[in-house]
Amino acid sequence: MKQPVKVGIIGSAGYTGGELIRLLLNHPSAEIVFAHSESNGGNLVSDVHLDLLGETDLRFSDSLTQDIDVLFLCVGHGNARKFLTNHKIAETVRIIDLSQDFRLEANASFENREFVYGLPELQRAAIKSARNIANPGCFATTIELALLPLAQKDLIKTEVHVNATTGATGAGQNPTATTHFSWRNNNLSAYNIFQHRHLAEIGEVLSQSSGVQPQINFIPQRGDYPRGIFATNYLKSDLSLEEAYSIYESYYAEHPFTHVSRKNIDLKQVVNTNRALVHLVKHQDILLIISMTDNLLKGASGQAIQNMNLMFGLDEKAGLNLKSIVY
């Protein structure tokens, strides 16, 4: 029997760190060596992540060990690079970073480390041989999966319009005015209109597939629910609906977590899973692609474990057979 993959987690008291712990505790080939948190060192993990009460006696660590195979960085944007600057991690340790610090080609190098963009539906082979992964953003994952089949065929000829709504957990665990329940409940708002930080990431990925970076008009919204991203993406297209479905079904045929549905889809079908769902609608000369993910799983921690599985030659779905909360 193979030895389990030894895992360390930095920033394990936040949402993505908590989801990683939850998934890794039930992973058949992984062992959590430490879950690091400077502010919670010595405390029970289940005192912070209440969903883990009765699941584990693991305590947060305020120190690091190099006796691991992979290190997950669940820190805020800009802090992963700072962490690696201040902590010399052995070259034998692979890194999966969940921040945006290494996602763009211009920022993908750090000292002697090269980070591979970790979207399996785009470059599974590169991930398998990678030493370091830049895990994609949640909005980026949802929108890229909607558009990649068209980009690969060079079928994005016009500007793309995207409206996407995310749950409150997408803003992180630290409370702000726009995540407080009394503001968020029964409310809806747009933010970072046309200027969301994931746009550069999305544009770069699509241009890698087609050689052309399309104009994307992106309006992100804050939803009044905890988790999940629902995106409507549309553009002008000469494809018939059947032609479009054929392209999408062919592209995702070998990818276990992204599914094309010919029936309309709703957000509860992906919440609490590592799945992405895609549905197509054709209206006159407009092709609409509805896409959705759980922002904490396929948009963050679940995809990070999917990447770990590929890097270590494990079953891609290991630890990720999760049931959606449809009722």
Rank of each mutant, 00 (worst) to 15 (best):
L20G: 04
H196Y: 11
S237N: 10
E249R: 06
L20C: 05
P214C: 07
D285A: 12
F312R: 06
F60E: 02
N321D: 14
S261L: 05
G8R: 01
I305R: 02
Q213H: 07
A276M: 00
F115E: 06
A253H: 13
T165N: 11
R94Q: 04
L206Q: 10
H77Y: 01
T169P: 01
D97C: 13
G223T: 10
L277S: 08
L122I: 14
A151R: 03
M1P: 09
L119V: 02
A168R: 12
R103I: 08
Q66S: 15
I216P: 11
Q221C: 15
N86L: 14
L314W: 00
G8C: 06
L148V: 13
D57R: 12
Y225L: 08
C74G: 14
H49V: 10
K88G: 10
L122G: 06
L84R: 08
Y225C: 09
H27W: 02
I265H: 07
V260I: 15
L147A: 07
A13G: 02
E144D: 10
I95N: 03
K268V: 12
R94T: 06
L119N: 05
L287V: 07
I265K: 03
N26W: 01
S250C: 06
I143F: 07
H255P: 01
Y225A: 05
Y248K: 01
R197F: 11
F72C: 09
F110M: 09
N309A: 05
L122K: 07
T178D: 15
G167P: 14
A171E: 07
R262Q: 12
A244K: 04
S324D: 13
T85D: 12
L241T: 05
A253Y: 05
N272I: 00
N112I: 06
K157V: 07
N264I: 13
R197H: 15
N163Y: 12
M308D: 03
S61K: 05
R262T: 08
D97N: 13
T92L: 00
L58H: 04
S29T: 13
K82M: 09
H49P: 10
K157D: 15
G18H: 02
I32G: 01
A106S: 15
G170I: 04
